[in-house]
Amino acid sequence: MNTRITDTDPLSPGTHSYRLAGLVQRYHVHGTGPVCVVHSGGPGIVWEYLRIPALEEHLTMVYVEPVGTAPDSRLPSHPHGYTRERYSGFLEILIERLRVPKVHLLGHSHGAFVAAYHALHRSGRLAGVVLYEGAPVTGSEHGAEAGRMVQAFAAKHAGHPGLPGVLAAFDAMSAMSNDEQTEAVAKGVLPSYFADFWGNEERLAPVRDAVRAVYISGLDEDGTPDMIDDRAALKELTVPALVVVGRHDVICGPRWGLELHDLIPDARLLILENSGHMGHLEEPQLFADGVRRFVLDTAPADSPA
């Protein structure tokens, strides 16, 4: 992999890296066209699962490796301290280094929470934001809805031999404390993150097996949870927004996508009817067409073609 510590062209294809606050920040550039910066989920899921070749045909996709997901990008307080404010601060420096007037920002899952925060607090270089499988809140309300959706998934697949493993992985989430446990849980719950994993297991099992994850606690350095409630703030969002949600998502499903759409002024909404949490893999062309149209409609006039 071609890694550059000093770059004359920050958008040349390949892997780029630089040092910031003693950490190495990497990002990966693929495709041509208007620039779309991509922040993956977790926190702690390694970025490759979110590679979107169908968008690379039309856009310059800049895939961020969120700090903490590589050994040389970990905070001294690791696994703590990875708040939205910190991710957003690193994002802002990266976007500035790209040397284009404005970019689009796409965040998936936890990355959508980060993208929403960035659009609310550091919108100056954003032409638009894509909130892909996000929600306006975390905490007990979000957890209760996820629990209800997981129960519905279990009822739908009652008797399937793979179901006990999925439910065991959900039960193990609260006890995660290291990278190995986190990766095992991520792979274990993944069948529930698709609309029909077991009906497409030959194609999707390699996706599950390729997932890599590191343990990030979700706590600030002082042990305070990084709780989220963006409902009031999102009503004042001025950045053009696209909300993308899969009809069968158990974690950040239609309830939250519809609420985000209703909260954000003039937001667009794309519901992927045959997807769960991974629409870019389940309905890749519909996903890519929706994001591409949004980016091209909202791109600055001087964006690269």
Score class of each variant (00 low, 15 high):
residue 17 S to Q: 15
residue 15 T to C: 02
residue 67 V to C: 06
residue 82 Y to E: 14
residue 57 E to M: 09
residue 76 P to L: 06
residue 30 H to I: 14
residue 35 V to E: 11
residue 74 R to Q: 04
residue 39 H to L: 15
residue 35 V to M: 09
residue 18 Y to A: 01
residue 40 S to V: 00
residue 71 P to Q: 14
residue 46 V to D: 05
residue 31 G to Q: 06
residue 34 P to L: 09
residue 54 A to T: 13
residue 61 M to E: 04
residue 46 V to F: 01
residue 83 T to I: 13
residue 76 P to N: 07
residue 59 L to H: 08
residue 29 V to M: 04
residue 49 Y to H: 12
residue 41 G to I: 07
residue 80 H to A: 13
residue 80 H to C: 14
residue 24 V to K: 02
residue 71 P to F: 03
residue 74 R to H: 01
residue 41 G to C: 12
residue 23 L to P: 04
residue 71 P to R: 08
residue 24 V to E: 01
residue 78 H to I: 05
residue 73 S to W: 00
residue 71 P to L: 10
residue 20 L to K: 00
residue 70 A to Q: 12
residue 59 L to K: 06
residue 18 Y to N: 00
residue 21 A to N: 11
residue 63 Y to L: 03
residue 34 P to G: 11
residue 29 V to P: 02
residue 51 R to T: 12
residue 44 G to E: 08
residue 57 E to I: 01
residue 45 I to Q: 05
residue 36 C to Q: 09
residue 32 T to H: 12
residue 70 A to M: 13
residue 56 E to Q: 14
residue 53 P to Y: 08
residue 65 E to F: 05
residue 38 V to Q: 05
residue 69 T to C: 04
residue 84 R to A: 05
residue 24 V to W: 01
residue 79 P to Y: 03
residue 13 P to I: 11
residue 39 H to Q: 15
residue 35 V to D: 07
residue 84 R to M: 12
residue 40 S to M: 04
residue 19 R to Q: 15
residue 17 S to I: 02
residue 34 P to W: 10
residue 78 H to L: 07
residue 83 T to A: 13
residue 30 H to Q: 14
residue 41 G to T: 08
residue 39 H to S: 10
residue 15 T to P: 01
residue 65 E to G: 07
residue 57 E to F: 02
residue 61 M to P: 04
residue 42 G to E: 02
residue 79 P to A: 05
residue 77 S to E: 12
residue 21 A to D: 15
residue 25 Q to R: 04
residue 53 P to D: 14
residue 22 G to A: 06
residue 47 W to R: 05
residue 29 V to E: 06
residue 54 A to R: 13
residue 35 V to R: 15
residue 54 A to H: 12
residue 75 L to C: 06
residue 78 H to D: 09
residue 61 M to F: 03
residue 21 A to V: 03
residue 32 T to Q: 14
residue 13 P to N: 09
residue 64 V to Y: 02
residue 58 H to S: 13
residue 36 C to G: 08
residue 36 C to Y: 01
residue 55 L to D: 11
residue 62 V to A: 03
residue 27 Y to E: 07
residue 15 T to V: 07
residue 13 P to K: 11
residue 30 H to P: 04
residue 58 H to D: 13
residue 67 V to I: 15
residue 29 V to G: 07
residue 82 Y to N: 10
residue 74 R to W: 00
residue 52 I to H: 10
residue 43 P to I: 02
residue 62 V to I: 02
residue 34 P to E: 09
residue 24 V to I: 13
residue 48 E to V: 00
residue 19 R to V: 12
residue 78 H to M: 08
residue 65 E to V: 08
residue 46 V to Y: 01
residue 82 Y to D: 09
residue 55 L to F: 14
residue 19 R to S: 14
residue 76 P to F: 03
residue 68 G to R: 00
residue 76 P to E: 06
residue 32 T to I: 03
residue 30 H to W: 10
residue 14 G to T: 08
residue 56 E to T: 12
residue 34 P to H: 15
residue 15 T to Y: 01
residue 35 V to L: 13
residue 41 G to V: 05
residue 67 V to F: 10
residue 24 V to C: 03
residue 27 Y to G: 03
residue 64 V to N: 01
